[in-house]
Design a protein around this nucleic acid. Structure first.
Length: 392
RNA sequence: GGAGGGGUGGGUGAGUGGUUAAAGCCACCAGACUGUAAAUCUGGCGUCCGGAAGGGCUUCGCAGGUUCGAAUCCUGCCCCCUCCA
């Protein structure tokens, strides 16, 4: 295994934990949030800005880079770190999630995934071996097994089938990786699946942890299940993962989910939510999410959050942000992305400190008391009404 | 003074006898977004009752008129724009 890669748990065991993840490109203090830079770019931000926001490690995507500009191109241009001028730790996702999210554009069977490119319609195949080779070629510090994510509505049989396929693929990924030179410089994580079924999750955790990956991910959550279910499954799985290895909850990252994930022993998170939502004008505050495009911000002559230490809040008023969004100025996307990323990363930093101080539970309560999740009653009502209108 | 064009819902702007409470866009309001096919998408937006379906009332500069029926046709008035003198 990779001698340059290690995880040292500093505090906690199965509940809230703090640790240090060491990679060839530096150390990562956990729990950590990883901004997502799918196409070798955290949308709207320069690496300097991503660094300034406190990011220690970012995530990119092998599927997207395979299509464009091509994994060999990335390698020939110096590897992903040099290509995108991000010298710190990095993780790539395998493309497994795209097999889930790209709906009509893909087909899955035991041999792998057939994609039709969303860019030019051309057909491509992904299988465990290719997913690993692509990620080795790109060169991130941490790479992920190819897995099959499945939507919440799927029946138990389908979920089980996807899980067992994920298991076969995990073994194959591990073998391909272990036989390669990359095993000296990269680390491969396994992914637990099993939907919202606790017995399947248990089976999956058992199987995946039987393979000696240096880290374990929980996949297939935040795909439509309730928050309660997501938390329950997270807790169920982390309890079945080895304590001395990092746990990574894939694709989760609303502020409230980060706090609850950390409470259940998760060390790593990634999520597009902070950046995507920022580009659409939604900004995080300790009281909850606000929509900066609302008229009421047009004359607010103070920062969005007085005590936020981000570049945006230290230099600009909410009225200015409102103006940038209304005028569709690109700076608005940047400033909003900076704020949201700083918000979640600062949240992680504070949680880490609280864990070390032994005050995490207090922190968690204080946060929950103040923070009103975006998924409000009004939103739920409207969503329900809409679904009903559609169904009827 | 002469010739022509025009006045439509918060803005812009279609509509030129019924299918029009009046397209589209903007603004505004309410939402959604979780391993990024996303600087995206959805709903509302005269007013009253209703959860909704639906129904009532009032609207296209003003006042009359024609017609079963008018934002659309006719008459008068008010206002705006362009060109000529």
């Amino acid at each position: 295994m990779n001698a340059q890669f290690s995880f040292r748990l500093q505090h906690g065991s199965n509940g809230p934990r703090a640790g240090i993840l060491t990679t060839p490109h530096g150390e990562v203090a956990t729990p950590v949030f990883m901004p997502v830079g799918t196409q070798a770019s955290v949308k709207a931000l320069s690496p300097d800005e991503v660094t300034a926001v406190g990011a220690q490690i970012i995530l990119s995507n092998a599927y997207h880079l395979y299509l464009q500009p091509g994994v060999r191109m990335v390698r020939d241009l110096g590897g992903l770190h040099r290509f995108m001028a991000w010298p710190k730790p990095m993780l790539t996702d395998s493309g497994g999630f795209q097999a889930f999210s790209m709906g009509a554009l893909r087909k899955i069977d035991d041999n792998g995934i057939r994609f039709r490119s969303h860019i030019d319609g051309s057909e491509h195949r992904f299988n465990p071996e290719l997913a690993i080779i692509n990620q080795i070629t790109i060169g991130a510090d941490i790479i992920m097994c190819l897995d099959q994510c499945i939507s919440y509505g799927a029946g138990r049989d389908q979920v089980q089938e996807a899980m067992r396929r994920t298991h076969r693929w995990a073994r194959e990924c591990y073998q391909v990786f272990a036989a390669s030179d990359a095993a000296d410089t990269q680390a491969l994580f396994g992914i637990v699946q099993g939907g919202a079924f606790t017995d399947l999750r248990e089976e999956s955790a058992e199987f995946i942890t039987s393979i000696p990956f240096p880290g374990y991910a929980i996949g297939g959550l935040a795909v439509g299940e309730s928050k309660e279910q997501m938390q329950q499954i997270t807790e169920w799985v982390t309890a079945r993962l080895p304590r001395d290895k990092p746990r990574y909850l894939m694709g989760v990252g609303s502020p409230e989910d980060l706090v609850e994930g950390v409470a259940r022993g998760v060390d790593m998170f990634d999520c597009v939510l902070p950046t995507r939502v920022a580009r659409n004008g939604a900004l995080f505050t300790r009281q909850g999410r606000v929509d900066i495009t609302k008229r009421r911000f047009s004359e607010v002559d103070r920062p969005l959050e007085e005590d936020c230490d981000c570049y945006t809040c230290r230099n600009f008023t909410a009225a200015y942000l409102w103006h940038l969004f209304k005028a569709k100025e690109l700076l608005g996307l940047r400033l909003a992305s900076i704020h949201n990323l700083r918000f979640v990363i600062r949240l992680m930093e504070e949680m880490r400190l609280a864990i070390i101080d032994g005050t995490f539970e207090q922190f968690r309560r204080d946060f929950a008391d103040a923070y009103r999740p975006a998924d409000s009653a009004a939103g739920q009502q409207q969503k329900a009404r809409w679904l009903q209108a559609r169904g009827g």
